[in-house]
């Protein structure tokens, strides 16, 4: 469904992503992990059109290199951000509506927005300005607005960061349902290995923009190289 082929991104002398190749299959929950500064969020920015790059990124067989972020959104790739982004001038309902009106193909569908508000448990705060929301609700709002674009792939950037154990459980359940009930492929960047091992079917570890290991989570977390560069000897 999504294929990165020898993708490289340099910022001046710094090589943020180095000849990276991997593929995500339809219906998967695909995890990406690695130390801080490994280039995980940069990979997201390349896929979603925020930065130009060398190499090829193909989505459903089409090369999407050179497309702008708003065009990528219309193709069916949605994302969230590591630092929660909201529209403080808009209400929760309006913000989710933005995704459906501008990002989805076809006409604006208020009933669909309504269903997303309910799905993400945002109905009680639908009329609230987004700036006043709790951290959990801000994350739900970002996911809701992304879902309102009717994506085929949803890319989540550290959705659990700053959350307590109850919130993590709640967000994990939402991600499972998005994947299972809506049939949306998920890519998730996360530092909580427990989340990744429970949610994902394939896990990719990168360090300094280079692939270290990829495979099923159980195999990856026991890989000596992954333990050395990321997890540490005390893991497990």
């Amino acid at each position: 469904m999504l294929k990165l082929n020898h993708v490289t991104k340099k910022f001046g002398e710094l090589v943020a992503v180095n000849d990276l190749s991997f593929a995500v299959e339809a219906g998967q929950v695909f995890g990406i992990a690695g130390p801080n500064g490994a280039g995980k969020s940069t990979v997201y920015n390349l896929i979603t059109g925020f930065y130009p790059f060398e190499g090829e990124i193909a989505f459903e067989g089409r090369n999407i290199a050179g497309r702008q972020p708003h065009e990528i959104s219309k193709l069916g790739i949605a994302r969230t951000f590591q630092i929660p982004q909201t529209f403080p001038s808009l209400t929760v309902e309006q913000s989710v509506g933005v995704g459906n009106r501008f990002g989805a193909r076809g006409r604006f569908d208020p009933a669909y927005v309504e269903s997303i508000l309910a799905f993400m448990e945002l109905t009680p705060v639908r009329h609230e300005p987004t700036g006043q929301l709790s951290l959990l609700d801000k994350k739900r709002l970002m996911m809701g607005a992304a879902l309102a674009t009717r994506p085929k792939i949803l890319m989540l950037d550290e959705p659990m960061a700053g959350s307590n154990s109850n919130e993590i459980r709640s967000l994990m359940e939402s991600i499972r349902r998005i994947n299972a009930e809506m049939g949306i492929t998920i890519i998730i960047i996360e530092h909580f290995m427990k989340v990744l091992t429970e949610l994902t079917s394939t896990l990719l570890i990168i360090e300094t923009g280079t692939k270290v290991c990829m495979g099923d989570p159980e195999t990856v977390v026991n890989d000596p190289e992954v333990i050395e560069c990321y997890l540490g000897e005390s893991y497990g």
Partner: peptide, 25 residues
């Protein structure tokens, strides 16, 4: 109108707005 919504969204968070399909250009 939705133009106004796009203006406000771009003002508040351009990267979030464009990721949701709004053309900043």
């Amino acid at each position: 109108s939705y133009w106004g919504t796009a203006f406000l969204a771009l003002k508040d968070s351009e990267e979030f707005a464009v990721s949701l399909g709004i053309s900043a250009f």
